[in-house]
Design a protein around this nucleic acid. Structure first.
Length: 606
RNA sequence: GGCUCGGUAGCUCAGUUGGAUAGAGCAUCAGCCUUCUAAGCUGAGGGUCAUUGGUUCGAAUCCAAUCCGAGUCACCA
């Protein structure tokens, strides 16, 4: 139980004993005490004034006295300033917390609940390589999955690959026209980039054809429709749907190039999926559901035989679910897939990591699923994230201002190498160790940078700043970890993590005031460490990894102050040394655990 | 135009179930390495929390209006 929860409960008990009135934890507020005042946690009196009809100071005095008197193991002192009751938490409480958790690598995580959640993320198209926006999506999805696991959920990570449709045919047509049989193997270009080049070539050729037609006096709309390359593409889509063998063959081949390329990227950034859905398999799903929806009178048919749902009562529009020619639209297959996910995995919650431009679509999807009475439809959650913009404005593929995922990852890794070499920290590492470290730091910087912002918000990607390894960054936190590990290693004979505990526990303990009283800097680290379980919980309820990023940075910062102020290995007494080593080990464990929740590795040395 | 989201330091972001003098990082300036890794620590300057009004003991946080920005409103996906 957190210290805040303890304080809430004690306050409720004391108020009940003092005033014979019952309160809940919503009737008053508890904050961490501001540093300029004496105390650790503060009960705000104002909200109690009305129901008790007493002055804030009068309540505070009685409450403070009662709390300290009846919970001596928790609170040792109190003071009241302008209606704020500041309580000092007993050193023994912090010592006890430290003792119980300093060697627990699972500290802060919850027991399994037996509940299943699916997190769908990444969801790329197979006509071009991944870009910076995908990275935000992938890091978010991965991290949210880990955060859910830490909160006791069983998580299935899934991905829906958009592997069919007109955009795929564009790359295919362009390849037929311009490639002369070239392949990723023959050119040495990564498969997804290779296919992406033909998507670009399509657009160039299409643009040229349209311009030519317009110059011949044809109006723009007609030109766009009649451009030969576009007509060929549309025909190809029809051929694909008819299952024409040579089209299917080309489609399979080009998609496989893309998948090979994606796998390289996923591998390098540490993304994986338990289940991959392909749109070519799911795009016909949901047709029978449309019929069921008709029977349930959720849907209705118009005169031209197209089928609709009326969501005007919910403040939305009418939405089509089946075309007049009887074919499905985009949302139909989403409904079908939502049901399939449930039936295959019996999930209680379905999370979709999708950009905020689809807010409306996802709102409609959820509503339809609910109206159809689909199980757990109320637990469909759209984890909507904001676009990544550049300092120069938006990323636009047509203007070539898209930041490629592979490029930026490579750049981060080589920057980390450059920084490391400049700092002269490469002395006693092997080549393999160096390579691994550059990757850990470069990727860590990248992931931290994209995850430290609230997912909902549009964020600006500033190349210069993202490459910074100081301050509120991944490398800062990693560095704190590496420094702690360096100290711990030196306390053991073999430098092995398994020996840390033994080495710490073997120190001579004395029982004196130097040991028992916590210094300010020591206590501050434990106070922050105590908040880790709450941070994990909050990150989960908000589906928000930035909570973890902010927390872990705060912890590292607090530890660094402590580190620079007091010697750990050279502490005044053996027992003080033991205390500080425990604080260090606990901090290292939390940093590693928290960073892992964001998919970020921590280096033992850097 | 309707709906949704956003506007906090020069820049990037925290902080919003209403609480004390609004916080970090970057950048700028000034200090700290014969002592556990200086990718660190300490300090300084920098704010009309978009604007106006309201609610109350108290508003960055809640309400209303206005201004600015983004997204969306396809028988596209």
């Amino acid at each position: 139980m957190s210290i805040i929860k303890h304080l809430q409960n004690s306050t409720i008990e004391s108020l009940s004993a003092l005033y014979n009135q019952s309160f809940t934890d919503k009737d008053f507020q508890i904050n961490q005490t501001k540093p300029e005042f004496e105390g650790d946690y503060t009960v705000v009196m104002f909200s109690l004034v009305k129901s008790l009809k007493l002055s804030p100071d009068a309540i505070g005095n009685l409450l403070g006295e009662h709390l300290v008197k009846n919970n001596p193991q928790l609170f040792t002192a109190y003071n009241i300033i302008k209606g704020f009751l500041n309580l000092t938490v007993a050193d023994a409480y912090w010592q006890d917390l430290l003792q119980k958790n300093y060697n627990d690598s699972c500290y802060g995580k919850k027991e399994m609940t037996g509940k299943k959640v699916m997190v769908e993320y990444a969801s790329p198209n197979t006509n071009k390589p991944l870009h910076l926006g995908h990275l935000r999506n992938i890091f978010l999805g991965w991290s949210v999955a880990e955060i859910l696991k830490a909160n006791g959920y069983e998580v299935i990570k899934s991905c829906i690959v958009n592997d069919r449709g007109i955009h795929i045919c564009k790359s295919m047509i362009a390849w037929q026209l311009f490639a002369n049989g070239a392949t990723p193997e023959s050119t040495g270009i990564k498969g997804d980039h290779f296919v992406g080049e033909y998507y670009v070539k399509f657009n160039d050729a299409y643009k040229a054809e349209v311009e030519k037609l317009i110059n011949e006096g044809i109006d723009k709309a007609t030109a766009e429709k009649e451009a030969p390359i576009m007509k060929a593409t549309k025909q190809m889509l029809l051929d694909w749907e008819d299952g024409k063998p040579e089209v299917k063959e080309l489609w399979r081949t080009m998609n496989s190039w893309v998948y090979t390329g994606f796998d390289v990227t996923y591998n390098s950034i540490g993304a994986d999926f338990d289940k991959t859905y392909y749109e070519s398999n799911t795009y016909l799903l949901g047709k029978d559901i449309v019929q069921q929806g008709m029977d349930k009178k959720v849907f209705y048919q118009k005169d031209d035989s197209s089928i609709w749902i009326d969501l005007t009562a919910e403040g939305l529009d009418e939405k089509i679910v089946q075309r007049s020619d009887g074919t499905s639209v985009y949302i139909t297959q989403d409904i079908g897939l939502a049901l399939q996910k449930y039936e295959q995995y019996k999930i209680e919650q379905s999370i979709y990591v999708i950009g905020n431009e689809q807010n409306y679509h996802m709102k409609v999807l959820k509503l339809i699923c609910q109206k159809l009475g689909m199980p757990n439809a109320e637990n469909i959650f759209h984890l909507s994230y904001g676009m990544v913009e550049l300092t120069s404005g938006k990323m636009k593929s047509r203007e070539g201002t898209v930041v490629d995922a592979d490029d930026i990852v490579d750049e981060m890794i080589s920057t980390s190498q450059q920084h490391t070499e400049e700092l002269g920290k490469v002395k006693d590492f092997t080549a393999d160790e160096l390579k691994a470290m550059y990757k850990t730091i470069g990727l860590g910087a990248m992931k931290f940078y994209l995850l430290r912002v609230d997912p909902k918000k549009t964020m600006v990607f500033n190349p210069a700043e993202s490459i910074d390894f100081h301050g509120f960054t991944g490398p800062f936190v990693q560095y704190t970890y590496a420094r702690i590990k360096s100290i711990l290693r030196k306390q053991t004979d073999n430098g092995h993590p398994d020996s840390y505990r033994e080495a710490i526990d073997n120190l001579q303990m004395t029982n004196d005031s130097i040991t028992n009283d916590l210094l300010k800097a020591e206590k501050e680290v434990i106070v922050v460490a105590e908040q880790y379980p709450s941070a994990i919980e909050q990150a989960c309820t908000e589906h928000n990894p930035s909570v973890i990023a902010n927390y872990v940075f705060h912890l590292a910062k607090t530890f660094n102050s402590f580190y620079s102020e007091h010697s750990i290995a050279g502490a005044e007494t053996e027992s003080k040394k033991q205390l500080r080593l425990k604080i260090s080990l606990l901090t290292a464990n939390i940093i590693k655990s928290g960073m892992n929740l964001m998919g970020i590795a921590v280096p033992e040395r850097m």
